[in-house]
Each structure stands twice: as structure tokens, then as C-alpha cells.
Amino acid sequence: MFRSTFTLIAALACTPVLLAQDDLLDLLGEEEKTKEFTTASFKTSRVINGHSLENTAHGVLDFKINHRFGFLNGGLYEWFGLDQAWVRLGFEYGITDRLQIGIGRSSFQKYVDGFAKYKILRQCESGCGMPLTLSLVASSNVTTLRSSEVPWYSEGREDYFTHRMAYSFQMLIGRKFSDALTLQLMPGVVHRNLVRTVAEKNDVMNIGAAGRVKLTKRLALNAEYFYVLPGQTMAAEVPTDRMDDPNPGYKNSLSIGFDIETGGHVFQLHFTNSTAMNERGYITETTGDWLKGDIHFGFNVSRVFTVYRPKPKVVE
């Protein structure tokens, strides 16, 4: 009798195990969480003119073709700006997943520019707790115009190469809040080796803000705004009614546009009051006034090529 009771208990004890077998995969226990960084905060490495939180992936070459047409207020005579165009051609490459470099040449002011962008912090999807992405962008540019055409040269000034250079340092801090919404802040400084008058600052403090709203899987709405702190810059020619502006003759850069993604290309179509396509240009030399219709229609085309394939991460 003792033995049969014992067996009964033993048998009953085993039954729950049998019942629990509904889900075989549960037998493997909890999966270890793999570290996963947030991807696709923006469709490409630029919001419009400014840098976005995204980098060109490791081993990927991104060929950028940027166009800005003339001002819309040119009217029918200028075909609403389409009679003029400024172009920037650029190449960007991802050296690692964190580090990206790029070069470009613009027809506007015959600027040649180069930059490096490094992701210090990466927003994390799972496996770690980082809530935001932080990148540093350092860029420099030089105008290759003839000295007689450089607007900030005065008669008889010695033409040093270093005088033609300017630098920009930006910090990008942002977060992809959801599939639909990404926001970023970009405090920065533009250093110009030579300025036209003593009243102007060599170091121009600025702060930008940008965001993206994803409308459909392949279409997003982007906007960016760069605020230049007052009293730092002044254009060569200032209309009398604009002498009291925070930075006489210059306006803050505001751009709004759409990202359209088609396989290997991203098309960015936008409206902006900035003509230049590098930091010195769009932050410190924007002359267009949105309210007066000084708006460029423009586009950026990004075409990526995988030139080097990093080895897949080791599977243990």
C-alpha cells in the first residue's frame, strides 16, 4: 500500500510537466537579449542641408547630387527660379558604423568642403539603455573663387589660402521617438578665418533643430531651422530697412522638404532660403527671406554603392 501511494504521488508530480509542453520553444528558456541599435532615424545622412543622426553604413559609398534652383519670386521671367541652378556633388563613405567622411564641390562660391562625422552615443533598441544618439560633425570648406570675386575681400588685401577657409563644429543630439517621429538638436559653431569687418565675429554660434515625420513607408516630411545668435554677422550690402536685423543682411536658414525612397536612391525635394550647401554657407551666409518669397526649390539625390562588405558579426 505504501508503495502504491508513493507511485501515485510520483506519477501526479510528473503530470504538470506533461501539461506544460504546449509551447516547445519555452523549453529553451528566455532568449538572451542581443544589443540592437536604432536604425533609420532618417532616410539618409542629411536632413536637408544639415547632417542627420544617420551615418552612411560601414563600407557604403554615398554619391550625393544636390541642386538648388533660383528664388521662386523670380516669377515667370526666371521660370520661378528654374533658370538658375547651383550644384554640389559629393561623395561620402562609412569607414566604420560610427565614423563617416565626405567631400564635396559646390558651384556656389566654388566651395570645396570636407567633413568627418562620428557617432559617440547610439540610441539603443534593445539590450542596452541608451535613449539618444549623439554625433559630432567637423567640417571645413574653402572657396576657390578668384580673389577679385570673393565677396569678403577688400581691395589690396593679401590673398592667403588660409583666409579662404572656414570650419564648422556641430553636435547632433537626437532621438527616434517612434517609427513616425525623429527629432534632433544641433548646437554648433562656425569659425571663419577671415571676416569682412571688425564688427563681425570669427566664431559664429548657432543652434539648429530638425525633425522628421514619416508619412508612409517610403515618404517622410523633413524640416530644419538654424538659429544664429544675434550680432555676429553682417552682409556686405544691407538694405537700409534691415540694418536693425539681428544679423543685418542675413537670415536664419529654414528648410522644409520630403524624402522619397526608391530602393537604392533617396530623393529629397525641398524648399529652402539657403543657397549654399555647406555649413559656413547655409548657417552664416543665408540671405533669402521666406516672407519675401526668396525660396529655392531644390533636391538632393543620394545613391549608395556597397564597395566593401564588412564581415558579419561573429556568431558564438
Binding site: 523549453l27 532568449e31 542581443t34 557604403v60 549608395v304 556568431v315
Partner: peptide
Amino acid sequence: HKSTSVLDASTGAVEFAVLMKGFEFDKAL
């Protein structure tokens, strides 16, 4: 290379699971 599967040979029951983000492509994009 990280899909999981459990097979119960006594009943023939089998399950597979795979994380979609674990698929690795030649091209990052």
C-alpha cells in the same frame, strides 16, 4: 544563424522561431 528550434521526437511536434532583425544582407541599405 540564430534561429531556434525544438523537436519532440516522441510526438513529432516541432517549432521554429527566428528574429527578423537577425537576417544579415550583403548591403546595409
